[in-house]
Amino acid sequence: MTNAIQKLYPSTKMSIVLAVILFTLMMPGYISQYSVFPIFIIIAFISGVGTKFLSAFIKSIFVLVLFIFVFQCFLIPSDTVIWSKGILTLYKEGLEASLLMTSKIIAISSSLIWFFLVTPIKDMMFALEKAGFSKKFTFVIYSTIQLIPQMKKLSQTILEAQKSRGIETEGSLMIRLKAFLPMLGPLVLSSIQQTEEKVLALEARAFSATVRKSSYYQMSKKPVDYLVISVIFIGFMIFVWWRFFK
């Protein structure tokens, strides 16, 4: 993590996301919303996460946007027909609705994908604690994010173990259904029962101490953070003035 953008304070990055969301919702039309996407591609590449950004975007948003166009343009009938051939009819209202909808989805999603790619969890949790959120709150989020990959790995191990014990995982639906429980069962029971020991282990680490938690890991807002926040704030104010008062 040597990239200057990744090193920004989490709330600085969050303020960029918030500004994008508000701008996207307040701005009429769809052209400016669509232009948010290429801007974020550039920002993502500058932040050193360009490829990851594009791959996450294509995996999550692309199909959805495509489907929205098909649905709104061809399947929901309205008054004005733009184009028609055979059973396919393209409606003007549908086209406009899908442009408005997808432009917002793309803009907001790209800002969020970027945010989570360039903000280490550790920084996020530090900022949340610093902002006064309780340690229980950050603990639950942090341990969830850390536990998921561990459980995925564990389920893979169980899957392989069950396969080698001769439990069939391919074949008819009944066979596959039957394979499901012996796989999930041990995982559920062991992980649930482990929470019991985990409570005590946390208590042994003074989790219930009533003093305010400190952090060995430290990060702070630097001049560049204040600069970015000021630019965003002033820029947004100018936008609001232009949009509503001019």
């Binding site: 042994a204 989790f207 400190s214 060995y216």
Partner: peptide
């Protein structure tokens, strides 16, 4: 591991 060992002290509000 370093942070793991530090965790209890953090919970007690010890200075970094």
């Amino acid at each position: 591991v370093f942070e793991e060992i530090a965790y209890g002290l953090e919970n007690l509000g010890t200075a970094p």
